[in-house]
Design a protein around this nucleic acid. Structure first.
Lengths: 117, 117
DNA sequence: TTTGTATGTATCCAGATCGGATATAATGAA
DNA sequence: TTCATTATATCCGATCTGGATACATACAAA
């Protein structure tokens, strides 16, 4: 089985998993998603991106899949990736961890007007 | 001035700033706070902790202060730290960044029952 | 056809960061 | 005195990152 408990995530690793949680994507699209979501403040860069993808595949959190056919012109360079069940659980764990952090930040008055109600 | 825009934060750096946002504290207390907040899943360890504190001080995000006198027995080993205004802004920025990430994770269905309403 | 630009993946390197071990010392209780 | 806990500090190997570089395909324009 590729199951058990997921290995610890790096910050870049979570960014990639989060992008893939919205649907299968190829590397370059992941890069753009991260850039847009952060308003340009976080950028992966090719080095970190493809290295991270390779590690996630090696750890069983992500797998490569053939183009979903619903893609338009079919660009032969693209390599698509998909979350595995293990990767999904890892992303959930990390998201909950981050949510706890955000709650604490909110409680410390670091956020404008959040979930205080 | 120590102002301008705050330098980028490392994950460990934010953990420390978040702990200090709740009030001045000494290093060991910061370590325990991080451990408890994460339910034991994140541990700083002395190496990362004191190295990070030194860097934050060097960057002007944190300053050392004398024991607040409201402390009980007065342990001469303890060194207390306090957020600077710059450090507070850096923590705010990072907290907002993380909140955006958590929102995205929620939108992708990675969180149990969050702010979806 | 040729040229040029954007897209897409991949690897390499120097520097930054981290976890854990180790060292040292003061505190407080037995 | 003895001992475990608290507290700070430094060192080392391993990991992670950003940016440069390289290379190839797609596509539009000339």
């Amino acid at each position: 089985m590729s199951d058990g408990k997921p290995p610890p995530l790096t910050p870049a690793g979570f960014q990639v998993l989060l992008a893939l949680a919205r649907g299968n994507a190829h590397g370059y699209a992941v890069m753009q998603f991260v850039d847009e979501l952060s308003g340009g403040e976080i950028q992966l860069g090719p080095g970190t991106l493809y290295r991270t993808l390779a590690r996630l595949v090696a750890d069983g959190l992500v797998r490569e899949v053939s183009a979903d056919a619903n893609e338009e012109p079919h660009d032969s360079r693209r390599r698509y990736y998909q979350l595995t069940p293990l990767g999904n659980r890892a992303a959930q764990r990390e998201a909950e961890q981050l949510a706890r952090l955000v709650d604490a930040a909110d409680g410390a008055g670091l956020l404008p007007k959040r979930r205080s109600a």
